[in-house]
């Protein structure tokens, strides 16, 4: 509705609002009607003669160009209104961001002591699966000794595992999000049942449509038997 005023031909001050008289018409006597033919836009107020006297403004081209007190008030009000509108709208949008209870689960601690060598444990972190794999010596050697030229997404095993016996990777297939099955596939890593992506013992993509290695989340070892993920 704001644009209606601007798009119709109306007298303009610096803000161009609410002075609904055309520039070139002379001021009329009280009660006289002002013809509004040919303006093809905004309808004139219903009592133009009275209104003009109400305003007490005689329009001339000189008066139109200088910004006046009214323009200042309009712009200042609009500016404060915009800040107010922002202040009102922000909480309504921010409430959809993760809330305190979700953020509290942003990090989890995992006890590594019960995980046997060769075992893969799946934990829930930020709503999704994370594989914690206690790797055997063979699995570590296979991962380290892979030439990078064989990898679609080249990464060394050392880049991916802080301690070689513990591999911690996200359990979400980088193709379309299914959870791959552990100890499957020709590399004894993981294989995704949905479209056949095959990962090795470092969680790197070897075959299939997935474009990237299983992502490594942020993690820290709090001790030899406790790791904090996230």
């Amino acid at each position: 509705m704001d644009n209606l005023g601007e798009r119709c031909e109306i007298a303009r001050t610096a803000t161009g609002r609410f002075l609904h008289e055309p520039v070139r018409e002379p001021a009329t006597a009280v009660g006289a009607r002002v013809e509004t033919a040919g303006r093809g836009g905004h309808a004139s107020p219903l009592a133009p003669g009275l209104w003009r006297n109400d305003l007490g403004v005689q329009l001339s081209s000189a008066a139109i160009e200088k910004p006046n007190r009214r323009d200042f008030l309009y712009i200042a009000t609009a500016a404060v209104g915009a800040v107010g509108a922002g202040a009102v709208v922000w909480p309504l949008i921010d409430q959809m961001n993760p809330d305190a209870s979700t953020l509290a689960l942003a990090s989890i601690e995992v006890d590594l002591a019960p995980i046997a060598e060769g075992q893969i444990v799946t934990v829930k972190w930020r709503g999704g699966p994370v594989f914690v794999r206690h790797r055997t010596k063979k699995e570590i050697d296979d991962a380290v000794n892979t030439p990078l030229s064989e990898l679609k997404d080249p990464q060394t095993d050392q880049e991916r595992a802080k301690k070689p016996e513990w591999l911690i990777v996200s359990g979400v297939c980088t193709h379309l999000g299914c959870v791959p099955l552990g100890h499957e596939g020709q590399y004894e890593g993981w294989k995704c049942p949905c479209h056949g992506s095959v990962y090795d013992t470092s969680g790197r993509i070897r075959q299939g449509p997935a474009p990237a290695n299983l992502p490594v989340p942020e993690y820290t070892f709090l001790s030899d038997t406790r790791v904090k993920i996230g």
Binding site: P91, A100, T102
Partner: peptide, 13 residues
């Protein structure tokens, strides 16, 4: 209570 305590600006809304 979750709205009042956890949701961002939940108390306000």
């Amino acid at each position: 209570e979750h709205i009042m305590r956890d949701v961002n600006y939940g108390w306000l809304i």
